[in-house]
Amino acid sequence: MIANYGYKDGSGEYYISIDTDNCIDCAAGRACLTACPKEMFEIITDDYDDEVACVKKNFTRTLAFDCADCKPAGGYTTLPCISACTPGAIKHSW
């Protein structure tokens, strides 16, 4: 399943997509949990009893601001969460 967490507002579309099929049995040792400086990810058991990462609820309405520090303007060339997720499950829409 591809789970899109985020929102669309007047300034743009801000979604973090997690491909749960790539996230189950994570080959990166759940590196996303520690890679994100804001610790935005957590592991949940989804409705199909699979342990997968998701974006914590309190961040889903403020992604544009919470992720801003890691975007190019913050000096990063690649996003820490995407680099850490070697199975390639995490994507940003912006």
Binding site: I2, N4, D47, T60
Partner: peptide
């Protein structure tokens, strides 16, 4: 009947 992709709008 399994959800394979979803998007919601948490804000607007």
């Amino acid at each position: 009947g399994k959800a394979i992709d979803f998007a919601g709008n948490e804000k607007c």
